[in-house]
Simulated assay, not measured.
Amino acid sequence: MTQRTGTAATFRRVAGLATAVLAATALSAGCGTGDGAAEGAGSTPGASASADPKATLLAAVPDEKDAAFRFSTVSGADKFTGVVDPAAHATELSMSQKNEDPEFTMGMTFRVIDEDLWMRVKLTGIAGLHDMLKLPKRWMALDRTKLDDASEAPVYDGADPANTAAIIRTADTVEDKSNGTYTGFANLADNADVQDAVDGVDVAALGEAAKKVPFTAVVGPDGNLTSLTLEIPAAGKQKATKLVTRYYDFGKAPKLTAPAGDQVQKAPTSAYELLNG
Score class of each variant (00 low, 15 high):
K65T: 13
K65Q: 14
K65H: 13
D66W: 05
D66V: 00
A67M: 06
A67C: 04
A68R: 08
F69V: 03
F69I: 10
R70P: 11
R70G: 12
F71Q: 06
T73C: 04
T73N: 06
T73I: 09
V74H: 07
G76L: 00
G76P: 10
D78W: 06
D78E: 15
K79R: 15
K79Q: 10
K79L: 12
K79T: 14
T81P: 09
T81K: 15
G82T: 10
V84C: 09
V84T: 09
V84L: 06
V84I: 14
V84G: 05
A87H: 05
A88P: 11
H89S: 12
H89C: 09
H89Q: 12
H89L: 10
L93F: 07
S94Q: 08
N99L: 06
N99A: 13
E100A: 07
E100P: 01
D101V: 12
D101R: 03
P102N: 06
F104H: 06
T105K: 15
T105N: 09
T105Y: 11
G107L: 10
G107Q: 04
T109A: 11
T109H: 07
F110R: 10
F110M: 01
R111A: 02
V112D: 05
V112I: 14
I113E: 14
I113K: 00
D114T: 10
D116C: 08
D116Y: 00
L117W: 06
L117K: 11
L117S: 09
L117T: 11
W118V: 06
W118Y: 08
M119F: 10
M119D: 08
R120S: 04
V121C: 04
T124Q: 11
T124W: 10
G125H: 03
G125A: 01
I126D: 01
I126W: 00
I126G: 01
A127K: 14
A127T: 13
A127G: 15
A127M: 07
G128M: 05
G128E: 10
G128P: 08
L129Q: 07
L129R: 08
L129N: 03
H130M: 01
H130V: 01
M132Q: 12
L133I: 09
K134P: 02
K134S: 12
K134Q: 09
K134C: 04
L135V: 12
L135F: 01
L135D: 00
P136W: 06
P136M: 13
R138F: 03
W139P: 05
W139G: 08
M140I: 13
A141E: 08
L142I: 09
R144K: 15
R144L: 02
K146D: 01
K146N: 03
L147M: 10
D149A: 03
S151Q: 07
E152N: 08
E152M: 05
A153K: 10
P154G: 08
V155T: 12
V155G: 11
D157A: 13
G158I: 03
D160I: 11
D160V: 12
P161H: 08
P161A: 04
P161V: 07
A162R: 12
T164V: 14
T164M: 10
A166R: 12
A166I: 06
I167P: 09
R169H: 04
R169K: 15
T170C: 07
T170I: 14
A171N: 11
D172V: 15
D172P: 15
